[in-house]
């Protein structure tokens, strides 16, 4: 959902012009120091929950329930992570999540590149209908159409399958919309020159358009990967076997419910750390494109 919201909304936000840096004046700028202090405080507030979760993942159960809470890491990280890995069948869960995230992201990008290409670079009968059909569906989150989509998946025999987990996530036109916007900015001379040289449409797409839109593809990939990895309600409904479970669902078995379990928050948090690492790594490695891709749609 977030992916879709982000993409459609971003398409409306025009490129923000960069203003030249104001010349620096005073040698010690106390205002800047205060600003940095403020931002560091925010960073600390935002980071503390994750830090604490990590700390817990290194403690024994006794340390977890100690009062006052211990705020520094302990030395039991390794056994907690091993315990979480084996108890939650982590390898399988992570593998499934990776498949869902990568397949849904790559699949959606691929079909959107093709349909946007058809819409921008061809004239054909029924184009208006196709256009309308795609754009009227711009934003219908999975959460909203969940039951009847579930029925469709059941009819197709796709329950407990990767197809059922991934293909419905591709059903949205936001990426098509974004690629269309980008193709419209590509100068006509490029197409004409290519046509003069006898370059066919598919060759043009592959050798000219795709290399040009690499940054957009990267930004979309980040958004869609995170979207796919973090799906919760959809996998919860259409999978009920251990083998097909994704990691954000599998984690929940480890949550200690007050009163009924030993509060093994340490094992839980070790598992959570493993579950959150891949999407966080993706956004950190690709953050430059991510912000750019969302704010400046026309690039």
């Amino acid at each position: 959902m977030s992916a879709d919201g982000a993409l459609t909304a971003s398409a409306r936000v025009e490129a923000l012009p960069r203003i030249a840096e104001a010349p620096r004046r005073a040698p010690v700028d106390w205002g800047a120091v205060a600003v940095h202090a403020l931002l560091l405080l925010c960073v600390a507030v935002i980071a503390f929950p994750l830090y604490y979760a990590f700390v817990i993942s290194t403690q024994t159960v006794e340390e977890v329930i100690a009062r006052p809470p211990m705020l520094s890491p302990s030395g039991h990280m390794f056994e907690n992570y091993v315990e979480a890995w084996t108890r939650a069948h982590m390898a399988r869960l992570l593998w499934n999540s990776a498949i869902v995230a990568v397949v849904s992201a790559v699949g959606k990008i691929a079909i959107s590149v093709l349909s946007a290409f058809a819409i921008v670079y061809f004239d054909f009968r029924g184009k208006a209908v196709a256009f309308w059909m795609i754009f009227v569906t711009l934003m219908l989150p999975v959460e909203v159409r969940i039951m009847s989509t579930y029925e469709v998946i059941g009819d197709l025999g796709w329950l407990n399958s990767y197809a059922g987990l991934t293909v419905p996530l591709m059903a949205s036109a936001t990426a098509t919309f974004l690629f269309r916007q980008f193709y419209l900015t590509v100068p006509n001379e490029l197409v004409e020159a290519a046509q003069l040289d006898g370059v066919g449409p598919l060759r043009f797409l592959w050798s000219f358009l795709l290399p040009l839109s690499w940054a957009n593809i990267a930004a979309l990939f980040v958004v869609l990967f995170i979207y796919g990895w973090n799906q919760y309600l959809w996998p919860l409904m259409i999978t009920n076997t251990e083998a097909m479970r994704v990691v954000v669902i599998g984690l929940q078995d480890l949550i200690p419910r007050t009163g009924t379990h030993i509060p093994e928050w340490n094992v839980m948090m070790a598992a959570a750390m493993m579950a959150l690492l891949p999407p966080v790594a993706v956004i950190l490695f690709m953050q430059r494109w991510f912000v750019k891709g969302l704010i400046e749609s026309e690039k």
Partner: peptide, 12 residues
């Protein structure tokens, strides 16, 4: 350092 929580799943 500010952006990463966006990548977290709401469940996590």
């Amino acid at each position: 350092v500010l952006l990463w929580p966006y990548a977290l799943s709401p469940a996590v």
